[in-house]
Structures are given as structure tokens and as C-alpha cells.
Design a protein around this nucleic acid. Sequence first.
DNA 1: CTGAAAGCGCTTACAG
DNA 2: CTGAAAGCGCTTACAG
Lengths: 380, 380
Amino acid sequence: MAGKRTIEDIARLAGVSKTTVSRVLNHKPDVDPATRERILRIIEEQSFVPNIAASGLAGGRNRLIGMLIPSLTWPLIPDLLRGIAEAVEDTPYELVLYSIKDEDLERDRSEVINRLLATQLTAGLLAVFPGPASEQLTRLYKQGFPIVIIDDQIEQTTPWVGTDNTAGAYTAVRHLIKLGHRRIAHIQGPPEYLASHDRYNGYRQALLEEGIIPDPDLVLVGDFLPPTGRACASTLFELPLEKRPTAIFAATDQMAYGVLTAVEEYGLSVPRDIALVGYDDDAPSAHVRPALTTIRQPIFEMGQSGIELLLSMLSETHRSTHSDWSPTKFGRSSIGKDRETQPPEPQPVRIQLPTSLVVRESCGANSHISVSTSAGDDLR
Amino acid sequence: MAGKRTIEDIARLAGVSKTTVSRVLNHKPDVDPATRERILRIIEEQSFVPNIAASGLAGGRNRLIGMLIPSLTWPLIPDLLRGIAEAVEDTPYELVLYSIKDEDLERDRSEVINRLLATQLTAGLLAVFPGPASEQLTRLYKQGFPIVIIDDQIEQTTPWVGTDNTAGAYTAVRHLIKLGHRRIAHIQGPPEYLASHDRYNGYRQALLEEGIIPDPDLVLVGDFLPPTGRACASTLFELPLEKRPTAIFAATDQMAYGVLTAVEEYGLSVPRDIALVGYDDDAPSAHVRPALTTIRQPIFEMGQSGIELLLSMLSETHRSTHSDWSPTKFGRSSIGKDRETQPPEPQPVRIQLPTSLVVRESCGANSHISVSTSAGDDLR
DNA sequence: CTGAAAGCGCTTACAG
DNA sequence: CTGAAAGCGCTTACAG
């Protein structure tokens, strides 16, 4: 039975003090190599695993990492979680899931974040797609709590992993333009998300670059999900013929599925009557008919890079003057003072991963090529 | 700043001892209503949240629930997580994610389980789709650790939430038979999972009931994922014409997608040349062309029921002689003794949720009805 | 290189 | 109804 031993048992078996056992547990220097060996052997034999609650309490490192995941309905979540979970598997950390119902408002997000801090067991936070919550996170980060944001960050003041949504959208629309389209509609995401604005901007830039004036009637706002895609498409199909678009760029694949439904309802055909490009490369997109041309996001890699970045921040925190962040310690110093005594902050790390255009049938191109937009293609 | 206060601060502010604060925190009786009120008010004012690590250490209830989730690639995971997360949101518990790479062997699963126990912070375990690991979980449960298994359990000795896979498969195949098919192939899941056997049995029973002798050549084994569905379908399409099936029942929608790919490659058409039914009702299935007829599992509800069952077990554990399970306590009593002193075990709770047949285009039926198989339809 | 002691924030008998 | 004290399993100065 694993887990029944305490550090005291190990100490007794090894003929040393708890202090020494603790030292080898925490890879501290200044332990006689022979004793270290012996202790390690006994730990192994007894399959001893330290109680991480006690360790955290006593001032050791916390071994839990919070994951703030709004919108578990987002279809890319499993891939993202895989990226995160696999990278954590080989570390002494565990993942605590803090999720938030989609319907919940900003207020509730901050409530969850407070709870997360208050219970004091997480060493850091990986915030996925925080949307409107990112301001609160920025504040926390400035106070010294390790945070990495994955995707969609309003202020650029927190370590961040993401993609260039502007460049991705630009690539998508440029592809449509090259295929000869000039009246290209865009179904946008909700305005609370930065990604919505970025994708719109990429769309706009691709048009302007070709001298096409963006037509406001061709830009509609959805909520990322199929029903709004369908509704927006219906609106477009009701336009007088000369105003109607010949192509649609939907800000998510999900909304593109809604477009496909509307297309059927109107007796139209993709790509004959209307070309369609989505964004995300959700799993269904390869199986939908016609298969969806889309911008692929490297979700697995985003999760992986995010957690790796956070882990590296955690080990730094620990190294520097063993001052693990804790709400207790922080709470005692006044904000003003804190700011003065701190050295000028270095620019937080930002990792931008490339997206790629996945050409399938829905855009009317017949070849199955895949064009990569690297981070360097940023156009802003 | 939430979290900086300790129980001591609250005690001081309320003019009582830490003991009393602890009592109201844990809803213990025998506290003067007036003092209780006062303390609660101060807790609220200070937005005090107890340190759950300390609380767990001191012998209070653990507030973390482990989730063992193999196979994050399983497309139903987000729905399942939503069901779990939403039900946990209103409780004082948090969720710790223990996932396991798909490639990892049984050995690694038990390693994760050991780690989970050893760190001693989880009050109970929700094991999703454990497959081969379920035996170890059974052992743990018998030792008194609260466990609920969601789906796929070999021994029926643990509290369990799931569906009747035999009945679901039976319904699927019966539907095909009613449509006139007699040569019906089955693409099975991997043998390590009970669900694979159950779905095969449902298939077999539906055939036998109609006097159709199952043809071993028409039963192939996949791994739940699209590529094997495609490979198995190819094998079937290579059969001499008179042996070839007119319908395929795939044990997962994912494998059915693979079948659709093979169908295209062979220049065949669904449902004209071959009818197809899947299992799971993954999100893509409504968007695939032709849309997939399938058996829908109430995944969200499974997660919800599972966590609710576990939570109820946890409150019982706590109520009965305040004997929270802990590896320490358990480790000290010999197994034999333990067994003798325990009362005869009551039958563990089993919750079986109904599946339903979702009729779409791929089976060749033209109506869009939905037939429900309740748990009572069990045929074994 | 090593150990005794104090303490992290809480809970739980025990004694009023 | 309430409190003082011990203790959960660990870590960390401090003192050798």
C-alpha cells in the first residue's frame, strides 16, 4: 500500500533526522552522497511519496497548477488538455481544473479566480482563452503570481502563448481572393474576444491590399457556434443578388457548419454557388461535406508550450530567494511599496505559434495543398 | 486581496477562539446562534477562505476529487467534463485531473493511481472509462476509498454510472434488420474494453433473434478510431460479392467516419450501396454527409450522475464515525482484521442511463425519428 | 554535512 | 456552548 509512510518513518529507517530526508526530497545541496543514496533507496523501497498538502503548508513549493478553462464546449479543448497533461505528466505537479459555465458572467470568473488563490494550493495558473477575464489576470501577474495565458489576451502584459489571428484570417481571405472572389463576407466572433477583432482585421487587410473596399453589409456578428453561423448566412442569402457575397469567411469552423446548413436550406451548393472558409480545423471539418477549407491552429502545441512556459516560471520563482508567491506574504506589503522596491519588469515572454491554411473542398480550389503562415508573416 | 487572512485573524476579530471558528466553518452543532452569525459575517466581510491544504492535513475533510481520465482524445470528453464540472461548481470541492497518455500501459495507470493516493489530497476518485484499470480500482474501493466508475467496468463491484451497451447495440442492429438488411457487418472496439464486448453481444443478439447466423467474416476488430474503421471497411469491400455486407454497424462514430472514407475510395455510396450505423453521437455525426445514424449516449448526464454519486458517498463517509479514509489509517490495520470487523458490504450503487437511437441519413431510413431504449430494455 | 525545534493553518479530542 | 493544547506531515532557519 503506497502512501502510508511519513517522512519520519523514512528518517527512522535511514537512521537520520527528518531534516535530512527533507533535504534529499527537495534536492538541496550539502548532503553526504552516501546518505543521500541510502535515503533515496529507502524511499524507493517504501514507495514513499511525500504528502503534498503538508509540504505546501510548511512553506515548500506548491505542487498544484490551476487550469482556468472557460467553455469546455470549445471543441479544441481535448487537444489542448492533452498537450498540457502530457507535459505535466513527467513533473511533480498535478493539474487542478477550474472551469466556468459558459453562461456565467465576468463576475463569476473573478470569483473562481479568487477561490483558486484563496485555497492557496496552486503554484501558478494556466488560463485558457480567458476573454474578458484577462484584465484581472494581468493584475495578479503584476503582483507576482505566476500566470500564463493561452490565446486571447487583451493587454500584452502577461506571459502568453497563442497564434497570430490576424495573419491567419489574412491568409484565409487572401486564398479566397486568389480564387477570384471579390465579394467576400465575414461572420465575426463575439466582440468580447480579442480573436474576433484580430480575425476581422486580417479579413479587412486582405481586402484592402487588393483594393477591395470592405462592405459593412457583408460583415455579421455571430457567437462562434453553428446556429449563429446559420442565421448570418441566411441574412446574407436574403440580400439582393448584386449585393450577395460569392464567398464567406467564418471566424470559426462551427459557424461554418451553420453556414452549410443554411446553404442546404436555400438550395445552394458549396463551393459552386458560394465558397466557404472556416477557422480552427475542428475534427469534424475533414468529414463534413464538402470538406471544409480552414485555418488550422496548433492547439496541442499551444497547450504544451503554455504549460512548459509556466513550469519554467515556477522553477525561477523558486530559485530566486526562495520567495514563493503566496497571498499571505503579498497581502502584508502595501501595493505602493511593492511597486517601488521592484526592479523594472522585464517584458513578459510571448510565444506565437504558426497557423496553417488547410485547403479542402469548400473553397473551390481542387488541390489539397497546405500553406503555412509562420509567425513572421504578421502584418500589423 | 482574498486569502491573506487565517482562521486566527477571524477568531481575533470575532473575539472567540480558533476552535469556535473552525466549528462554524465545518457546520458543527453546538455553537451559539448569535456567535455563529457574527463569525459568518466576519468571514464574509474578510472574504476569508480556509486553506484547504491545512484543513486536509489536520484531519478535516479533503476537498479535492481526483478524476482519472484516460484518453483525452475521446471526443465525448468535453461533454463529460462539463457534466462533472458544473455539478462540482456549487460544492466546496475542486477537481484534480489525472490523465494518462493513450499509449501508456496498464502499469502506468496503476502508477498514476498510486500517486493520486500517496499525495493524500483527494477525498475520492471518479474514474472515467478505466478499461483494464478497473480491477485495481475495485480493490481500492473494497479497502474503503470512495470510487465511482463511469462506463466500462469489468467487475460489478464498484459504484458505477453508465449505459447499457448491449441494449444500445441491439437497438442499432435491430433498426438495420427492420430496414431489410440481413448481411450486417460489425466493426468492434478493442477487446480490453468491456464496451466492445457488450456492443458485440447486442449485435449478436439482434441477429440471432431474427434467425440470422452471425458470420465471423463480417466481424472485424478496430481500435475505436477512424483509420481502423477505414481499414476494416476496405476488408469488407474486398469480399466476394455474395459475402459482402449490405450494412455496417460500427462500434464508434469515429470508426464510422473511417468507413465513409473507404466508401468514397471504393466509389460506393451510403446508404444506397451500404447502410451505416455508428455509436456515440459525436458532434461531427450530424454534419458528416450523409449524416450518421447512431446510438446517442447521455454523456453530460453520465458525468453529472457520476460526480453526484461520489459526492453523496463522500458525505456519508464523513458522517459515519468521522472516519475519513486515509491511507495512513488503513495501512495500520491488517487487511485480514479489517475484513472481519466490517459489516457485510451492501451492493454498490449502479446507475444505468438510457441510450437512444438517432436516425439520420446513413442508414437509409428517411424519417428523422428518435427511439429511446430505456435501461429496462436490457436483454441479457 | 547534520539535527532539534519552531511553525505553516487548520481540526479534534478533552476539559470545562 | 466554548477554549487551550496537541498534532497532522512537512520545511526552514538556527546551531552545531
